[in-house]
Amino acid sequence: MNNDFNIKSAVVDEKEHIELGKFYFLNNKYDEAIYEFKKVLEINSRNAEAYYNIGLIKEASNLVEEAKEMYLKALHIDPNYKIVRDKFNKLVGIEI
């Protein structure tokens, strides 16, 4: 618990929050991962990867509507974000 706290306080920039979020995600700690990706968005609200990552966690949690909303936000920032476009299309039911 203390270790977690120390890591979190040491992380200050966007990239570090992204990496920490990914680390949590890969260890099935979805709530902690989302917390980190939201921190990224507090620093830079136009970080498309953070939206994608949150969308992916929502999708993995079977929260399809929330996933779509996050993917759309990522696409709004970066319309050429291919993996997001593919995942969004799949959720909406459009065959690629």
């Binding site: 990914k22 995600f25 890969l26 099935n28 990867e49 990552n53 992916l56 999708e59 993995a60 993996i83």
Partner: peptide
């Protein structure tokens, strides 16, 4: 189940 993975470019996926 959906299992988290990371690809070669560092992008996460399931």
């Amino acid at each position: 189940k959906q299992v988290p993975i990371i690809d070669n470019s560092g992008q996460i996926d399931v």
